[in-house]
């Protein structure tokens, strides 16, 4: 399956990554090659195979509904690039 520049641009938008024009150019070519290599998977008949999203047969892992200590707001916000009071702050969202 081929991947063109428009698709790369769109996918980069979904991933919220800004690409410079030269990056887009280079990346499109590289992804094209990588996907070309990956396409060897289509040679296999997988119609009767179950997908493995987990490799180990573990199930029903649950936690008791018991409160644990939370972080203090100071700790929670310690790494924030921009904060205001006890809030994280981001550029204004225009609804």
């Amino acid at each position: 399956m081929a991947i063109d520049k428009e698709t790369v641009k769109y996918v980069a938008h979904l991933a919220r990554i800004e690409l410079q024009p030269d990056e887009l150019e280079k990346l499109s070519g590289q992804l094209h090659d990588i996907l070309g290599f990956i396409d060897k998977l289509s040679r296999l008949d997988t119609s009767r195979v179950n997908p493995s999203s987990h490799i180990l047969p573990i199930s029903n892992v649950l936690r008791e509904d018991k409160p644990r200590d939370s972080l203090s707001p100071d700790k929670a916000l310690e790494n924030a690039p921009v904060k205001k009071g006890n809030f994280f702050s981001v550029p204004k969202i225009l609804e």
Binding site: T7, V11, L14, L19, L31, V49, N50, P51, S52, I55
Partner: peptide, 29 residues
């Protein structure tokens, strides 16, 4: 950036079955 974009593509609408789902099946094999 290369891997994030490749991975986003593999999960994106219309390609999921051909790439991601198929990969999970071959993983089983």
């Amino acid at each position: 950036k290369r891997r994030i974009i490749l991975g986003t593509f593999a999960l994106s609408h219309g390609y999921y079955d051909a790439y991601y789902l198929r990969a999970l099946k071959v993983r089983t094999l």
